[in-house]
Computed example of a mutant assay.
Amino acid sequence: MSKTLTITDNRTGKQYEIPIEHGAIRAMDLRQIKTNADDFGLKTYDPALMNTANCVSRITDIDGDRGVLLYRGYPIEQLAENSDFLETAYLLLSGELPTTAQLNKWKTNVTLHSMLHENVKKFMEGFRYDAHPMGIFLSTVGALSTFYPDAKDIFDEQSRLTQTVRLIAKVPSIAAYAFRHSQGLPYIPPDNELSFTGNFLNMLFRMAELKYEPNPVLERALDVLFILHADHEQNCSTTAMRTIG
Rank of each mutant, 00 (worst) to 15 (best):
3 K>D: 10
5 L>Q: 06
5 L>K: 05
7 I>T: 02
9 D>K: 05
9 D>I: 05
10 N>M: 12
10 N>L: 12
18 I>M: 04
18 I>R: 04
24 A>L: 11
26 R>K: 12
27 A>M: 10
27 A>H: 09
27 A>L: 15
29 D>K: 03
30 L>W: 03
30 L>I: 04
32 Q>T: 14
39 D>H: 12
41 G>T: 04
42 L>S: 01
43 K>D: 09
43 K>N: 14
45 Y>S: 13
54 N>K: 12
55 C>Q: 13
59 I>E: 07
60 T>F: 00
61 D>G: 10
65 D>K: 11
65 D>P: 02
70 L>S: 02
74 Y>W: 14
75 P>W: 03
76 I>F: 00
77 E>S: 13
78 Q>Y: 09
81 E>H: 07
81 E>N: 07
82 N>V: 03
84 D>F: 02
86 L>G: 01
87 E>F: 02
88 T>Y: 01
89 A>R: 12
90 Y>E: 01
90 Y>N: 00
92 L>H: 05
93 L>M: 09
97 L>Q: 01
97 L>T: 02
97 L>S: 03
98 P>T: 07
98 P>A: 05
99 T>A: 07
101 A>Y: 03
102 Q>G: 02
103 L>A: 05
104 N>H: 11
104 N>V: 11
105 K>Q: 11
107 K>Q: 09
108 T>E: 08
108 T>D: 09
109 N>L: 11
111 T>N: 13
115 M>F: 15
116 L>C: 06
118 E>F: 15
123 F>N: 02
124 M>V: 14
125 E>Q: 15
125 E>M: 15
125 E>A: 15
126 G>F: 09
128 R>Y: 11
134 M>P: 05
136 I>F: 05
136 I>A: 02
137 F>Y: 12
140 T>P: 01
141 V>Y: 00
145 S>T: 14
145 S>V: 13
145 S>H: 10
151 A>H: 08
152 K>S: 08
154 I>S: 09
165 V>M: 07
173 S>C: 08
173 S>E: 05
175 A>S: 14
177 Y>E: 00
179 F>L: 11
185 L>A: 13
185 L>Q: 14
188 I>A: 06
195 S>Y: 08
196 F>W: 10
199 N>E: 04
199 N>Q: 06
200 F>A: 06
204 L>C: 15
204 L>V: 10
207 M>E: 14
208 A>C: 08
209 E>C: 05
211 K>M: 07
212 Y>V: 01
213 E>L: 13
217 V>M: 05
217 V>D: 02
222 L>Y: 09
223 D>S: 04
223 D>A: 03
226 F>N: 08
227 I>Q: 01
229 H>E: 11
230 A>S: 15
230 A>L: 05
233 E>L: 05
233 E>G: 00
234 Q>F: 03
240 A>H: 11
240 A>R: 14
242 R>C: 10
243 T>A: 10
245 G>Y: 14
